[in-house]
Design a protein around this nucleic acid. Structure first.
Length: 595
RNA sequence: GCGCCGGUAGCUCAGCUGGAUAGAGCACCAGACUUCGAAUCUGGGGGUCAGGGGUUCGAAUCCCUUCCGGCGCGCCA
């Protein structure tokens, strides 16, 4: 087994497992015992050392031994390890490990050597993952509600990429349902308006926003007045296509403003292209494995359903895969339900080689998860898995007061307005500075505040402060390198073994945690963990900086000691590297100066 | 009625897939600028992890149950 040397926790865990195997060889442990639950974790309390191993407690039952006795046997082996300074047994059987300083120096060197690539992992083994996010209907500009899913999906995709997965970022364009016909009719009104007609108020049920006026103008430019007297059946496909095209263009611009990328824009309409009906194919393949039947559904309970009509229909047996009720695939007019299209779409993902799919949805779609996960299991024969990440609502505030929005009148706050007002970095970071399934208050006044209370600023300032130290150091020592590559080369040669202050070592421990964090966050599909880590790292860095006020010997720059200064600049280089890596992963700028 | 997601300090939230004495920020109180950026930092008080059962060496975390809030519940997407 090769050690992943980038992750110190893996290395030490490997040593603990090796110790277990030594005990197996000597008969002190049963051979072939399962070690997968024996983990090495960072300690919360420094009094417990650097890392804690739970092996003795986890294996005690299978071994038929008392945890503390087993711990003692393991400790005896681990005490000879070249990375380990001290082994103590505590509590119910924890093996507390204190590492030698050289272990932390090695971790710091790793970070400096890796640079931009620090934290990159091979855990994904290049497995293909499809992440679908945003997928906003092409019926208007993006509003703030779309923001969170967009940023979350984008950051999650980057996180998985960094963790070694082969990631495809995808957007599903809902361009086939009834709502794009409504869009077309709304755009047609604007077309008549552009031709000089007085259209009066926009009728109920059509999209009232001004954003369709340019579509009207474009239609005039392209078709003149030729559409005006045609029957709807003739103009609708033309108007619809133009409107969708222009809406998608606007949406892509909005996404670009937020720094959100996609590799694939997948059209729902393309599923039912003239020569090939992929929805029918998907249903047929489910029918082949016996998961489709004609039957009746009980009426929905509780919810008002005056127009409920009991009838026999085509159903997918989603209850066989954990859903609460079987789901219809055809509407009463003979067209496919949205669910049927979605099955075909996810089958397309599977057919394109994705066994891991992640969909990012808004909270209002939560009730849809079970049936979609059921469908993915069914169409893949159990080979593919779908993880649906729900992002909760964002409440937009200004200095604590809710920002009024009225969708009915077409006056909603657009994504673009928010980005223009507070900047993309603030929007992105704050959307990620919360667990995805918890509701989020987004205060337009707070995110531009320059204080610790504003996490974006606080983290970026940490990065800028590091670079400020580099600038000041160059004034004291003009020979120091001026660029990133030079600093990395110098840091790699620096005598970092001179760094023995406890706060300096604490920073190295924090830096050493980053690769482990990436793997944990990627495994859990939780990019917010990166944001919180960066906040913590910044906090430790700011705190250590301030120690230099009371204790000048702890400053990074020691004017009469260029060698010690080199060592400390290497530590700053390590901190700056991790902050830059983490911010880049979240899609947020890492400024070198913020004055 | 059923399902999903939440309930952690006065407020806003973390809690690393079951670890040791539950942590930050804000607010409140008391401090630190001739200084590598005070746009920062140090210290203090503040908790029945909604309530109650259970699982085990060990539970905020897993299971059951009650209460409260949000969302959803053929032919919208």
């Amino acid at each position: 087994m090769t050690e992943n040397t980038a992750n110190l926790f893996d290395v030490v865990q490997g040593r603990v497992h090796a110790a277990c195997e030594t005990l197996m060889a000597s008969g002190a442990l049963p051979a072939g015992i399962d070690l997968s639950r024996a983990m090495v974790e960072p300690t919360k309390d420094a009094a417990h050392g650097d890392m804690a191993a739970n092996a003795a407690m986890v294996l005690a039952k299978d071994a038929g031994k008392k945890p503390r006795d087993l711990a003692e046997a393991l400790a005896a082996i681990l005490r000879g390890d070249d990375l380990i300074e001290k082994v103590e047994i505590a509590g119910p059987g924890f093996i507390n490990l204190t590492l030698k300083h050289s272990a932390w120096f090695g971790a710091l060197r790793n970070a400096i050597d890796a640079g931009d690539a620090y934290g990159c992992s091979t855990m994904g083994a290049r497995e293909k993952v499809n992440v679908e996010y945003v997928s906003a209907n092409p019926t208007g500009p993006m509003h703030v509600g779309h923001c969170r899913g967009a940023v979350f999906g984008d950051a999650l995709a980057t996180l998985l990429d960094v963790a070694g997965f082969d990631v495809t970022r995808e957007y599903y364009i809902n361009d086939a349902g009834a709502q794009v016909d409504v869009l077309a009719r709304s755009a047609f009104l604007r077309y008549r308006e552009a031709l000089g007609e007085n259209i009066g108020d926009i009728p109920e049920g059509l999209y009232p926003g001004d954003y369709l006026k340019p579509v009207g103008g474009a239609l005039v430019a392209e078709y003149g007045s030729s559409l005006k007297d045609k029957p709807e059946a003739e103009w609708l496909p033309l108007v619809r296509a133009k409107a969708i095209e222009m809406m998608m263009l606007a949406i892509r611009e909005d996404l670009a403003a937020l720094n959100v990328r996609h590799d694939v824009f997948f059209s729902e309409r393309s599923l039912v292209a003239k020569d090939k009906d992929q929805v029918a194919d998907a249903i047929a393949s489910l029918r082949k494995v016996g998961e489709i039947y004609e039957g009746r559904l009980p009426p929905p309970k509780g919810a008002p359903a005056e127009d409920w009509e009991d009838r026999e229909q085509t159903l997918f047996r989603s209850t066989a895969f954990g859903d609460d009720v079987d789901r219809p695939l055809m509407k009463s007019d003979g067209s496919y339900t949205y669910f049927a299209s979605d099955i075909a779409y996810h089958k397309s993902k599977f057919d394109r080689g994705f066994n891991q799919m992640i969909d990012v949805w808004g909270a209002d779609h939560g009730g849809y998860i079970k049936r979609m996960a059921a469908a993915v299991k069914a169409i893949s024969g159990g080979k593919a898995a779908l993880d649906v990440k729900i992002v909760q609502l964002v409440k937009l505030l200004r200095a604590g007061e809710p920002v009024k929005m009225s969708k009915r009148s077409g006056e909603f706050v657009t994504l673009r307005e928010v980005v223009d007002e507070v900047g993309r970095d603030a929007v992105r970071f704050m959307m990620l500075f919360r667990k995805n399934d918890a509701a989020l208050d987004f205060d337009l006044a707070k995110v531009i505040e320059q204080s610790r209370d504003n996490a974006v600023f606080y983290v970026q300032y940490g990065h800028a402060r590091g670079h400020s130290i580099f600038r000041m150091a160059r004034e004291a020592f003009p020979d120091l390198p001026t660029d990133e590559a030079g600093r990395r080369a110098a840091a790699a040669k620096a005598p970092i073994e001179k760094l023995t202050d406890s706060a300096e070592l604490a920073l190295m421990r924090k830096i050493a945690l980053y690769p482990r964090l990436i793997e944990a966050a990627a495994g859990a599909h939780e990019p917010h963990r990166i944001a919180f880590y960066l906040y913590d790292l910044s906090s430790e860095f700011h705190a250590h900086w301030t120690r230099g006020r009371d204790s000048p010997n702890l400053r990074f720059i020691i004017k009469d000691d260029p060698v010690l200064t080199d060592a400390r600049l290497a530590l700053v280089q390590g901190v700056v590297t991790v902050l830059a890596c983490g911010l880049s992963l979240l899609g947020v700028e890492a400024p070198e100066e913020m004055r």
